[in-house]
Write a protein that binds this DNA or RNA. Structure first.
Lengths: 192, 192
DNA sequence: GTCTATACGGCGATAGAC
DNA sequence: GTCTATCGCCGTATAGAC
């Protein structure tokens, strides 16, 4: 891990804990045990740190959903399963980056902000397409696609806030339960 | 609406757009068309504004779920329905306050932070109880209660980010679709 | 590549005139 | 109740020695 990577990692942790604006370059410097001025030998600005974190992870998400959606051997059901798995994995492996992606992107400016918004839109488009296809082929219930899209996405995007606490469950059990809940709901049908 | 209320309202809007730390007292003053120093005739500090927004709305949520949970004429299913309705209503009526409650509470300090955390815990406890009762009486599927709790809560808590865009749906249709999706899932069962 | 020193502006908050 | 003026501090970032 290069010095630059170390700085970005520590900054991400601080951003996720206190928010971008509340973290100073002096805070970040202290976390990697150098002086604030020295940070500028590795990065041009505080903004650049945020951009690296947000755009990097946004790319990971977009690339993955694109691959999943393009794979002709996956059913709608399998595509959704893959997407859920990806969110769980990343929320467990890099919860700080996920937190920053979710809530600190507002502090991006100019070109980086545009890039982020484009990525986010692309991601939502891919998932929207999967859902609409599912409705058409009657594997998904005929409800408003936007409500389905954001209902699921809301849960997946905020996994980072609580999955770490799930100590009593294995990752496999967590995945199984979450998938069941998201796809089949929570009400136990007692049809005769 | 008193001057104090006006200040809090405008501050809430700014906090929801840029985040607490990125909004200055000068920004808030400009929004209500006075000078920053004049704000202190109505409020003791910037912190106090955040406290007013967060604790007020947290109380609204907690009081409501407590009433719902205590009402003996409600089934588990009806309780969940009431809670979903409450989240939709508040997300539509005061989306800025909901946004601040969701994401800016980290910037509370001392006693106010403790109060908020206690309220949030109480809210989650009430919902947890409803879910556990539902599982026991077999109206809710036997899955991990924590996964059910946070899966639903994640969607409800982030309604404010997208419900305003749902121009093509009436509130009633939105509620019906969201309830179906959360409670019965999205997969269309084709049992024979 | 890290340091010290520093520039320059904005921050929350207060004092006191009107 | 709003204003002007101001305090002391901290923000990002740069210059230049080592």
């Amino acid at each position: 891990m290069t010095r630059r990577d170390e700085i970005i990692k520590q900054a991400g942790l601080l951003f996720s804990l206190k928010g971008y604006s509340a973290v100073s370059m002096r805070d970040i410097a202290k976390a990697v045990d150098i002086k604030a001025a020295s940070l500028y030998n590795h990065l041009p600005s505080k903004q650049a740190i945020l951009e690296a974190i947000v755009l990097n992870l946004a790319n990971t998400f977009v690339n993955h959903i694109h691959d999943v959606n393009q794979n002709p051997s996956f059913s709608t059901r399998q595509k959704l399963s893959e997407i859920i798995q990806q969110h769980i994995d990343l929320s467990l492996q890099q919860p700080e980056s996920v937190a920053v992606l979710n809530t600190e992107w507002i502090h991006l400016n100019g070109e980086a902000l545009d890039k982020f918004k484009a990525k986010r839109f692309t991601y939502e488009q891919e998932l929207r397409e999967i859902i609409k296809n599912g409705i058409q082929e009657q594997s998904i219930t005929k409800r408003d696609p936007e409500v389905i899209l954001f209902s699921i996405l809301s849960t997946l995007r905020t996994l980072n806030l609580w999955v770490a606490k799930r100590k009593h469950l294995t990752v496999e059990d967590l995945k199984a339960d979450l998938e069941t809940i998201l796809l089949y709901g929570i009400i136990r049908q007692n049809k005769s």
